[in-house]
Computed example of a mutant assay.
Amino acid sequence: MGEHVEANGTRFWVERRGEGPDVLLVAGLSDPAEAWQAQLDGLSDRYRITAFDNRGAGRTPLPDGPLTVPLMADDAAALMSALGVERAHVAGFSGGSLIAQELALRHPDRVRSLVLVSAWARPDAYFRTMTRFWHWLAEDAPGERAMLEAFLLWVYTPRAHADGTVDRIIDETLAFPHPQSAGAFQRQLEAFAAHETLDRLPGITAPALVLSGECDIAAPPRFGRAVADAIPGADFEMLFGEAHQPFQEAPEKFNARVDAFWREVAGQSPVTDGGP
């Protein structure tokens, strides 16, 4: 069960599982903490996993005033303080990767390592046009299901559309009792689409792993490679056959890779079939 936690002037909904080294999971556009369910379930046997709803998603309100990525990074740092977490392995997905980058730049002592999934640091013309389409789609689609059917074309692999996975996700989203409003979606989108970190990434000192899906059309691998190239010592890896949300579509592969990275950062041996 989750709970609301007061931090940085806002009540954040937080889900926590497990014991061990701290891991903070930062979601992207629109996604509540439940987007990380496979990590909350699959990694909590060896880590203390924290996931939360960003401002304007799920059960966390979106107060009046400007919404920016630096503000959301400060939210994450304040939330860590409220939870008594001094440092954590931080994993950010999509827009959450921007928050994670900014967290590592603004609060470097909080970040033990970075995993940046489906990341970018400077939008190009294609990206800006895509996000403008999403902006009016949220308001002008003929219905919520139609909006999700169109939006998720950028998010999941063709196999997920073919095998019923996307239909199941849409049904779960429509049944979720804390839907995001079109206005909140647009405000989050505006913050993520306008933010750039590329010129500042050399200032990140935390060990970093950048993961890009081969089939990701929203944040294609060239974006992830540019992020990794700019962060000193960062590793870039392509997840072949995957798209924008590999942690949902291929959770076992994703969990194994990030676990190996975190163990490497901690100076531990990787898990084998015979145990740790």
Rank of each mutant, 00 (worst) to 15 (best):
residue 94 S to W: 10
residue 43 L to Q: 08
residue 70 P to L: 00
residue 120 W to M: 14
residue 53 D to R: 06
residue 74 D to Q: 14
residue 147 M to D: 11
residue 68 T to H: 08
residue 43 L to A: 05
residue 122 R to F: 08
residue 134 W to V: 00
residue 125 A to Y: 05
residue 79 L to M: 02
residue 136 W to L: 09
residue 102 E to L: 06
residue 92 G to T: 02
residue 120 W to N: 14
residue 131 T to W: 09
residue 29 L to A: 00
residue 71 L to T: 02
residue 90 V to A: 08
residue 118 S to G: 15
residue 87 R to Y: 05
residue 130 M to L: 14
residue 110 R to A: 15
residue 72 M to A: 02
residue 78 A to V: 03
residue 92 G to R: 06
residue 95 G to K: 08
residue 148 L to Y: 15
residue 113 S to I: 03
residue 128 R to W: 00
residue 121 A to T: 02
residue 77 A to H: 09
residue 38 A to M: 11
residue 62 L to K: 07
residue 107 H to I: 13
residue 99 I to F: 01
residue 108 P to L: 02
residue 39 Q to I: 05
residue 38 A to I: 01
residue 76 A to K: 02
residue 62 L to E: 13
residue 103 L to P: 14
residue 128 R to D: 06
residue 131 T to H: 13
residue 94 S to P: 11
residue 122 R to N: 06
residue 111 V to Y: 13
residue 117 V to N: 11
residue 33 A to N: 00
residue 94 S to H: 12
residue 74 D to G: 14
residue 137 L to P: 10
residue 106 R to H: 05
residue 61 P to V: 05
residue 33 A to E: 04
residue 138 A to Y: 10
residue 56 G to W: 04
residue 125 A to F: 07
residue 35 A to N: 14
residue 33 A to C: 03
residue 106 R to A: 15
residue 61 P to K: 06
residue 96 G to L: 01
residue 44 S to E: 09
residue 111 V to D: 12
residue 117 V to S: 11
residue 141 A to L: 09
residue 87 R to W: 06
residue 40 L to M: 09
residue 37 Q to N: 11
residue 91 A to I: 12
residue 53 D to N: 01
residue 54 N to G: 12
residue 113 S to G: 04
residue 59 R to D: 08
residue 115 V to S: 11
residue 31 D to R: 03
residue 98 L to H: 12
residue 134 W to Q: 08
residue 120 W to S: 12
residue 59 R to F: 07
residue 51 A to D: 03
residue 69 V to W: 10
residue 81 S to G: 13
residue 130 M to H: 08
residue 99 I to R: 05
residue 79 L to D: 03
residue 42 G to Q: 11
residue 102 E to H: 04
residue 69 V to H: 10
residue 67 L to H: 06
residue 124 D to P: 00
residue 50 T to L: 04
residue 80 M to T: 05
residue 115 V to F: 03
residue 60 T to Y: 01
residue 51 A to W: 03
residue 132 R to P: 04
residue 78 A to P: 07
residue 32 P to M: 03
residue 138 A to M: 05
residue 78 A to C: 07
